[in-house]
């Protein structure tokens, strides 16, 4: 199997793959049906955006409900009460929970994403909400890139006497932080990743969210890798979503600079 053989073989392969029998003729209606389907898909997304204003504010609230398992009802109740709703008229929360209806005439189609972006800046002031909030650069007082000593000083580690990391080590957080399962700390770059359990992003996406919700929240296309979405947070990290069966199955906040073998 020398170089010459290799070249000959791969030339043959090139020729085979260029065989004209691979040519397929588009149907007469192909262009039309693709454009129509694309338009429908876009309209569906815009319907999402049109109601997105109130949905985004309620996202934290809904996230809280969805993420709290039945055996911890008190937490869900706290979240529900404390969810910010000041920018919305009284009816908005109820509306947001109802099934999204047809788009409101008042909702401008083209500026849908701007509306959502503005809503994303809604503050999450209270502590209960903060505990389920996986921010763009960290979780509670943890910040991406923090050294192990700094992490230990936050008092959030389950075992404050755990030895510092060699390479990359996974540490559990104290159990009152139910929204986050663990963190990954690198010997070289410090806090490399926060692995969410029930925490949701500021856009209201969490484990259990649908692919549709994820794509809508981040205007993301799944085309690159349908099982994995990496959404830069613009704050030194990115949200890494794994999607199985059209639902988010795992969520982490990952530092841009890390050496823990994450994508």
């Amino acid at each position: 199997m020398n170089q010459h053989d290799d070249t000959e073989f791969t030339d043959g392969l090139r020729a085979s793959l260029s065989d004209d029998r691979f040519a397929l003729r588009p149907t007469a209606s192909a262009r039309e049906s693709i454009v129509a389907a694309a338009r429908r898909r876009r309209r569906r997304r815009e319907v999402g955006y049109a109601t997105g204003g109130s949905l985004a504010v309620a996202g934290v609230l809904l996230g809280g409900f969805l993420l709290v398992s039945p055996h911890q009802p008190e937490e869900g109740a706290t979240l529900a009460e404390d969810a910010p709703s000041t920018s919305q008229p009284p009816g908005a929360r109820a509306e947001a929970r109802a099934e999204p209806g047809p788009p409101s005439d008042a909702a401008p189609m083209a500026t849908g994403s701007d509306r959502v972006t503005r809503q994303r800046m809604a503050p999450v002031p209270d502590e209960a909400a903060e505990r389920t909030h996986l921010g763009p650069d960290g979780y509670r007082s943890l910040r991406l890139g923090m050294s192990y000593d700094e992490i230990r000083e936050t008092g959030m580690l389950a075992d404050p006497d755990a030895p510092p990391p060699r390479d990359c080590v996974r540490y559990r957080l104290a159990k009152d932080d139910v929204a986050v399962r663990a963190i990954l700390v690198s010997e070289n770059v410090g806090l490399a990743a926060v692995v969410a359990n029930r925490a949701s992003t500021p856009e209201g996406i969490a484990v259990g969210s649908t692919r549709e919700q994820l794509e809508r929240a981040y205007d993301a296309t799944e085309a690159d890798d349908p099982a994995q979405y990496e959404i830069p947070t613009g704050a030194g990290g990115y949200y890494l979503f794994r999607v199985d069966d059209d639902r988010v199955s795992a969520l982490s906040l990952v530092a841009d600079e890390q050496d823990c073998g994450l994508p």
Partner: peptide, 15 residues
Amino acid sequence: VQTVLEKVGSKWPSI
């Protein structure tokens, strides 16, 4: 082709 083009088309200006 259809699946991918539909998605691309729905986000055409941004793509």
